[in-house]
């Protein structure tokens, strides 16, 4: 369906006053913040694990993962659970409140100038009227090596 209409359905969420998007088909659910159990010896952006309907699911602070400050927990804070392959992970975001259809033709490659380090996490940007939406590259965000590399360096 997506390919045919060349529209991409995405979830829009806020992070550090910017708007980010993830394709809907990668999203499992959106949860309110719940009790997180810390797991020792993991990267700082890994906040721990939650009980997501009987499945122990790791939670990462997306802001921290992208090199920003850690997200402050408020009423609006949400956990977006995403699934890539066999890996299910919850992302802490400031708020998730929109679903959009984006014409794939409007997706532009990420502007080189924004920054350097966290650029690899970005798949592209979309200009939509007044809004600038950043399309995340989830595979990179959740890359296992990153989480483990960190650990090796630390130990």
């Amino acid at each position: 369906m997506e390919e045919m209409s060349s529209f991409l359905k995405v979830i829009v969420f806020q992070l550090n006053e910017e708007e980010y998007t993830i394709p809907v088909h990668q999203v499992g659910s959106i949860e309110r913040i719940m009790a997180i159990t810390r797991v020792p010896g993991t990267a700082p952006f890994v906040k721990g694990v939650i009980n997501l309907r009987g499945v122990v699911t790791p939670i990462i602070d997306l802001g921290e993962r992208l090199g920003m400050e850690s997200t402050r927990i408020t009423e609006q804070t949400r956990i977006i659970t995403v699934k890539i392959g066999d890996l299910a992970v919850g992302l802490i975001v400031e708020g998730a409140n929109d679903v959009l259809d984006i014409n794939q033709e409007l997706i532009e490659p990420s502007p080189e100038a924004i920054g350097t380090e966290d650029l690899e996490f970005i798949q592209g940007v979309v200009h939509l009227e007044q809004r600038l939406l950043v399309l995340l590259n989830l595979e990179k965000v959740l890359s296992l090596e990153e989480a483990l590399d960190w650990k090796k360096a630390e130990v």
Partner: peptide
């Protein structure tokens, strides 16, 4: 524990 944390 998820694969993501298996090395904890």
């Amino acid at each position: 524990l998820s694969d993501y944390l298996s090395g904890a």
